[in-house]
Design a protein around this nucleic acid. Sequence first.
DNA 1: CAGCACGACTGGTATGACCACTTGACCAGT
DNA 2: ACTGGTCAAGTGGTCATACCAGTCGTGCTG
Lengths: 240, 240
Amino acid sequence: MALRPVTRRSVSDQVFDQLLDDVVDGELAAGEPLPSERRLAEVLGISRPAVREALQRIAQTGLVEVRHGGATLVRDFRRAAGLDLLPRLLVRGGALDTAIGRSVIEARAEVGPGIAALAAERGGPALAAGLDAVTDAMTTTTDATAWQVLALDYWDLLVDGADSMVFRLMYNSLRSAYEPALPALATLLADEVGQVEPYRLLTAAIRAGDGPTARAAAARVLTPTADTLLGAFAAMEADR
Amino acid sequence: MALRPVTRRSVSDQVFDQLLDDVVDGELAAGEPLPSERRLAEVLGISRPAVREALQRIAQTGLVEVRHGGATLVRDFRRAAGLDLLPRLLVRGGALDTAIGRSVIEARAEVGPGIAALAAERGGPALAAGLDAVTDAMTTTTDATAWQVLALDYWDLLVDGADSMVFRLMYNSLRSAYEPALPALATLLADEVGQVEPYRLLTAAIRAGDGPTARAAAARVLTPTADTLLGAFAAMEADR
DNA sequence: CAGCACGACTGGTATGACCACTTGACCAGT
DNA sequence: ACTGGTCAAGTGGTCATACCAGTCGTGCTG
């Protein structure tokens, strides 16, 4: 008997999710006014403070604009939302949006090498030592999910080494989009397990402080994963 | 007579800002528990719902973790926050954080050319026509701020052409960090006004669907601004 | 000493009242 | 015809209070 943990989400959480989905799905079109807080509370059968908490959080993500005295308006999230919305877009209704997934892979391929280059210029041998520890752990790993976790740890160190707040925050956003899907992706990427060599080469370039080489090495680390996932996305679309 | 719009910020807004600043400044250290909602309300002299709204928004940005029945814990924002936090980090206490600013410039230099390359492969002549309209407007502009706005419009179209949700959201986050400082930056970048040629070359590469050339052209568009701003940041640090 | 029960916290929700603001309609002046 | 004032209705913003629902430490109990 596999009991799964009961999820007791708060009312305002549920309202938040519902509103967010409605906006993203276009069910609430941009420019359209939302029902008043009192009306929402009545329709949903909850209290106004609960509605307000959800609404404030929605506004925080830029999906909606509340105006004191006036109506609350839906905004075009493609224009107004920031990268923090990504996790909500990537997996919606339990399914993975392949178009969004594709753009994640593309962004990773674009940004990753840049981070590696910066890390090479700024991280030095201390960073390389930390990376070695991770790759050592990789060699003794056979589990696909554990491998992916280590890969994330590796990049985590790299991002630290790049010493850039923007890349750090970008990485956090991408990671929190990536992480929920990790177990599912890990099985797709099972063939990668054990391929430590590309990481070793990247670490070597970092240790040498060689930015351009690190950039190229990072691309080589990322390419196989990107190809596999893009292929999987294409297959998923064909199925549909 | 320069009338400035009256700013009447809501109580929960002010609490939100205050808590956010305290977390970012490290005044509230990571791992530390926050005072209870009742206590905060009492100390701040406001109602508990107001405190809660602020707290929920703080939690939404990942700076804090609220647990039903337990204390609300401060998290390490460098680890937990997403790119949406950037605007709050870039300008704090009315002043611009040069370290953050530097990393914005770096990220722009890294991501911009990638966007241009994608746009070249996917945008086609229709995109190029839109870009032409913007560069035409640039030729008739002498005001530094107006020029910067047009430059943003140009990139906005480019991002649309890249047809990537991740880059779109990244751009939105970076733009909302950049925009508040735009008037101040515009004066620094006054020399750029009228330099339409780099943009024209980039548009040509887009029209031709030539990704690599677009990438290089985008780098040429971005480099002068980057150099100017990095120089200005260095000067600001020297002053300090 | 292990285990449990309980009490004193914490956050979550509900209610109803009132304040502050926007909107639109209407009405008076010019 | 236009400006400005007034007003009522509806909206979001805030408050006070009570109670529900979890967590956590303490001290009792076996």
